[in-house]
Simulated assay, not measured.
Amino acid sequence: MTVETDSPLVFAFEFDADGNARRLGWDEIASGPAEKAGVRRWLHLNRLSPQVREWLDQKSGVDAVIDSALLQEDTRPRCVKHGPGLLINLRGVNMNDGSEPEDMVAIRIWTTPGVVVSLRAFHIMATQDLRDRIMQGDVPESSGAIVTYIAGRLTDKIEPVISSLEDQADEFEDQVIEEAAKLSKSALGSFRRKVLQLRRYIIPQRDALSQMTREGLEIFSPTEALHLREIADRVTRIGEELDNIRDRSSMLQEQIIEERGERMNQRLFVLSIISAIFLPLGFVTGLFGVNVGGMPGTASHTAFALLCLGMVALTTVMIFVFRRMRWL
Rank of each mutant, 00 (worst) to 15 (best):
D156G: 06
D156A: 11
K157H: 15
K157W: 09
E159A: 14
V161G: 06
V161I: 15
S163Y: 09
S163F: 12
S164D: 14
Q168L: 14
A169C: 12
A169M: 13
E171A: 15
F172E: 06
D174I: 06
Q175Y: 02
I177E: 11
E178G: 04
E178Y: 04
E179P: 05
K182M: 08
K182E: 11
K182S: 13
K182I: 07
S184K: 10
S184C: 06
K185I: 09
S186L: 13
L188V: 12
S190I: 07
F191I: 06
R193W: 05
K194V: 06
V195I: 15
V195R: 04
Q197V: 09
Q197W: 11
L198M: 13
L198V: 05
Y201K: 08
I202V: 15
R206E: 12
L209T: 00
L209H: 01
Q211K: 12
Q211H: 09
T213R: 03
R214F: 00
E215H: 07
E215V: 05
I219E: 00
F220M: 00
E224K: 01
A225L: 05
H227A: 12
R234T: 09
R234M: 08
T236I: 04
T236K: 09
R237E: 04
E241I: 04
D247C: 07
D247W: 07
R248A: 12
R248N: 07
S249N: 02
M251D: 14
M251W: 05
L252V: 14
E254I: 03
E254C: 05
Q255C: 04
I256H: 01
E259H: 13
R260L: 12
R260G: 04
Q266M: 08
L268N: 09
S275D: 04
I277M: 11
I277T: 02
L279N: 03
L281S: 03
F283L: 11
V284W: 09
V284L: 15
T285D: 05
G289E: 08
V290R: 07
